[in-house]
Computed example of a mutant assay.
Amino acid sequence: MSAYDDDFAAWAAEQAQMLRNGQLAQLDTGHIAEELESLARRERRALATCMSGLLAQLLAGQYQPERQTAVWHATIRAERREIRQLLEESPSLTENLSAPRWRDMVWSSAFAEVVEETGLDGLPATCPWSLVEEVLAEEWLPS
């Protein structure tokens, strides 16, 4: 049997085969649990990254209307589409949208990106929009 630390790909393939064969007693349950938790974290990070990117686009566009080009609109549509797909594939991620700590973390990342990219100041310290009713709404844009 391959060791988890020596050849991850071989270990994963062997674990999957043992699981399919019903060889439950031989499974490396500790490492399997770690990997499953890691997968869940990656999904949450992917959602946060997409949401932060979308918020940054919306924020920059609101404070610099000249950015509102066809490319800007296409980027917003693409981010929304990606977020919708993530939420459809993993509906439990929707809980993050209403979690204040998660929302603050995502806004902080978007805020920092916009400040770094544009040098703008006077931006709102907290997200002024509803993530579900506004930010993710197909045609909504900040005014």
Rank of each mutant, 00 (worst) to 15 (best):
E66A: 12
G22E: 09
Q68F: 05
E88W: 07
E134T: 07
I32H: 01
G53E: 09
T94L: 15
E117L: 11
L47G: 06
E138Y: 09
I76S: 04
G61R: 00
T75I: 06
I83Q: 05
E14F: 07
L141E: 11
R20N: 06
C50Y: 12
C127G: 06
H73P: 01
H73Q: 15
L120Q: 00
L93V: 14
R77N: 12
R80Q: 15
T118F: 07
H31F: 12
A10C: 07
R80Y: 11
L47I: 08
L136V: 07
E35G: 03
L39C: 04
P65F: 09
V132S: 12
T29Q: 01
T29D: 00
A12S: 10
R42M: 10
A112M: 12
Q64I: 00
D121H: 00
A125M: 08
Q17Y: 05
A74L: 14
V114R: 02
E95N: 11
E43Y: 13
T29P: 00
T118C: 11
L39A: 14
E89I: 02
M1Q: 06
T75K: 15
L87W: 13
R81Y: 15
Q17R: 14
D121S: 06
A25D: 15
E43V: 05
L97Y: 07
F111R: 06
P100I: 12
T29F: 01
Q85I: 09
A60L: 02
S52F: 09
Q64K: 03
G122R: 02
G30T: 10
Q64Y: 00
R103E: 09
L59M: 12
A99G: 08
A33V: 15
M1P: 05
T29Y: 02
C127R: 02
Q57W: 06
A125S: 06
A12T: 05
P65Y: 11
A9Y: 14
S38T: 13
P142L: 02
L131G: 05
E117V: 01
F111I: 03
V115K: 08
N21D: 15
E95P: 03
E133W: 04
A3F: 03
R84H: 13
Q64G: 00
Q57P: 00
L86D: 14
Q26Y: 10
A16S: 15
M1G: 09
R67G: 03
E133A: 14
I83H: 10
R81I: 07
A25F: 08
R80N: 11
A48N: 01
S38Q: 13
E66Q: 13
L93Q: 15
F8H: 10
G61S: 02
A10Y: 03
A110I: 11
A70L: 11
T126M: 11
S90C: 08
P65K: 08
P124F: 08
Q85C: 13
